[in-house]
């Protein structure tokens, strides 16, 4: 037992309060320009995924032999590719692929992760040990290789990508949830609730579950960014939706043969991936910071 009087004294001035009876004034939430831009981009992305024609009415597969490899300009903002297809139209139509794969894979990973994590965190030590070791073993496989193994069994395509990325990222989520569950189970307020005479199921439902599951959406947003990145990588290797589907990674792969003469075919879809992941990370981190602030 250690006894501390007064706040811990560190070199951080932000924690200095003049009146100890007056809690620090909480700052009102004001989103910065970065967060706004990231949010706007994500909204655009969702619109593009839901109804791409609203943003880019042209056909993403329509080739125009008269306008092959034309650079970005007034007619084609992102230029055209080796078949004369409009790159912007294809990027817009590709959003659906990326988001579908990302969201579905994250859903698998988060759902499975939460269930396994809760199971490990709430059950007996033996079950926990067995589950944890299995998760350890599963995370020993590098994500990309595990995905390749999955594809070797199930063949390339969207469904394979979803399954592969979902399973490969599941152990991480399961571990986080398990850790959080143990933390909450051993926390002071759960112990205190025991002294109120609450039954175990009631304790779990009222105190453990809400505090474990609360941060999960935040995790999911950041995990979604990783899934989109992984999907692009696997598609680049030819394991995802097959050409001529306008998938971002696949577009890069197709365009890289023309890199020397027409950089826009491959670089611009790549930048779409980067912008998506950056936006998701910015929004996710901000949410997380707010969440942590609320719990402190």
């Amino acid at each position: 037992m250690t006894v501390t009087l007064g706040p811990p004294l560190t070199d951080a001035p932000a924690r200095i309060r003049v009146d100890p009876t007056e809690p620090a004034v909480r700052r009102r939430f004001r989103p910065g320009p970065g967060l706004l831009a990231a949010g706007a981009y994500l909204v655009l992305l969702v619109v593009a995924a839901a109804s791409p024609a609203a943003l880019a009415p042209a056909d993403p597969l329509a080739a125009d032999p008269l306008a092959v490899l034309s650079p970005p300009g007034a007619g084609h903002w992102f230029g055209t590719d080796h078949l004369g297809r409009d790159v912007l139209t294809r990027v817009v139509h590709g959003a659906g692929h990326s988001l579908t794969i990302g969201v579905a894979a994250t859903a698998i990973a988060v759902t499975g992760g939460v269930l396994l994590g809760l199971l490990a965190g709430l059950t007996h030590r033996v079950a926990d040990e067995a589950l944890s070791r299995t998760l350890d073993a599963l995370s020993a496989f590098p994500m990309l290789l595990l995905a390749l193994l999955f594809i070797a069994i199930a063949g390339p395509g969207t469904a394979s990508l979803i399954g592969a990325i979902g399973i490969a990222t599941l152990p991480h989520h399961a571990r986080v949830v398990r850790g959080q569950t143990l933390l909450v189970r051993r926390s002071g307020f759960v112990e205190q609730a025991v002294t109120f005479g609450q039954s175990r199921p009631r304790l779990v439902l009222r105190h453990v579950l809400p505090n474990v599951v609360g941060p999960v959406p935040v995790l999911a947003v950041i995990g979604l960014g990783e899934a989109v990145l992984a999907a692009a990588g696997l598609s680049f290797l030819g394991m995802g939706p097959q050409p001529p589907s306008p998938e971002w990674g696949a577009m890069l792969s197709e365009g890289r043969n023309y890199l020397q003469v027409a950089w826009w075919i491959s670089i611009l879809p790549g930048l779409a991936v980067t912008a998506t992941v950056v936006s998701l990370t910015v929004v996710g981190r901000h949410w997380q910071a707010r969440f942590d602030g609320r719990r402190r």
Binding site: F189, Q192, T195, F196, P210, N211
Partner: peptide, 19 residues
């Protein structure tokens, strides 16, 4: 019988559900 015996700890904040 639990309700007849109560506990107050040193760190009240950690004994409250953060939500």
């Amino acid at each position: 019988m639990r309700r007849r015996l109560q506990l107050i700890s040193q760190d009240p904040l950690s004994s409250f559900d953060p939500r």
